[in-house]
């Protein structure tokens, strides 16, 4: 189980908070989708989990391990895919995957089986011996994904993993994630593609200006809103208003009230 308790992160020493007192629990075997407008703080949150950004406040605990107190133990069980596949582009795909497999200590047999399978799934077998520099954007994304999957970590942290993938790869990728979770693994990923999130995720969280404004299964969200809507409508409603809200009232409600007030002021 991944627990974020009161996580906050500021890039300007506390003037504004990219992530603001975030509390989240993600259960083992769960696929959790992290949604939010641009600049909401998704990437920042993911980076604090994988050890790239020390949070200014709060703790992040994975299966009882505080990821900032025992980084190595945690890292052995976590894989990360960044939002732009910025990897050693002067290595070949195979060299990069080998490096990752080496540092995660993947044994020879598993390494071979997984690699063959992943290369086949993502149709990268032919390109793997080439320099990553010569890859297209999507191919880079794929090799970075393969590298993230090859250690078969307990927790996969993926920042917009499907942007840039072709439909076939997206389809196979979704199957991979399901499989990963069936085997007890956890997936925490951010995305902007709502219908993927809707169909793939066990639960979703929506973040706006660093604060979690909604979190739960699709069912729960719908029930809260008392409407049988799609995630897209939900998302649009939730993230629409500009008003600041407390955690008990949702953004959209506050927004509506704000607009009504304005209207009534204008009427007068």
């Amino acid at each position: 189980m991944l627990q974020l308790k009161g996580v906050s992160k500021s890039y300007d020493r506390g003037k504004t908070w990219a992530v603001d007192n975030l509390n989240l629990e993600i259960n083992s075997g769960e696929i959790f989708g992290f949604l939010g407008p641009n600049g909401a703080g998704k990437t920042t949150t993911l980076r604090t989990i994988v050890g790239l950004l020390p949070p200014d406040r709060g703790t992040i605990v994975f299966d009882g391990i505080d990821v900032w107190k025992k980084p190595l133990v945690a890292k052995r069980r976590i894989s990360f895919l960044p939002d732009n596949p910025n990897i050693y582009d002067r290595l070949t795909g195979l060299e990069y995957v080998r490096f990752i497999a080496d540092v995660y200590g993947v044994p020879a047999k598993e390494r071979r089986e997984r690699l063959e399978r992943l290369l086949h799934i993502f149709d990268m077998a032919a390109a793997a011996p080439d320099l990553i520099k010569s890859y297209s954007h999507g191919m880079r994304q794929k090799i970075a994904l393969i590298a993230a999957l090859i250690p078969q970590p307990d927790l996969l942290v993926l920042d917009e993993p499907i942007t840039g993938l072709d439909p076939r790869s997206v389809h196979l990728f979704k199957n991979l994630l399901h499989e990963h979770c069936r085997a007890g693994g956890t997936v925490f990923f951010s995305t902007h593609i709502l219908d993927v999130a809707e169909r793939l995720c066990d639960r979703v969280g929506i973040i706006r200006k660093g604060r979690l404004i909604a979190c739960g299964t699709m069912e729960q969200l719908r029930r809260d809103r008392m409407a049988d809507t799609t995630l897209e409508t939900l998302f649009l409603e939730l993230t629409e208003s500009e008003a600041e809200t407390t955690e008990t009232e949702t953004e959209a409600e506050a927004g509506k009230r704000e607009r009504e007030k304005e209207r009534s002021r204008e009427d007068k």
Partner: peptide, 29 residues
């Protein structure tokens, strides 16, 4: 164009296996 590193032969499973055989962490680094 970026010149591709020529090791086309490595695209078969057997050759790949040699290319990705495990190393100690220090050696990999």
């Amino acid at each position: 164009a970026v010149p591709k590193k020529k090791s086309r032969q490595a695209s078969g499973p057997l050759e790949r296996e040699m290319l990705i055989s495990p190393r100690p962490v220090l050696a990999a680094l």
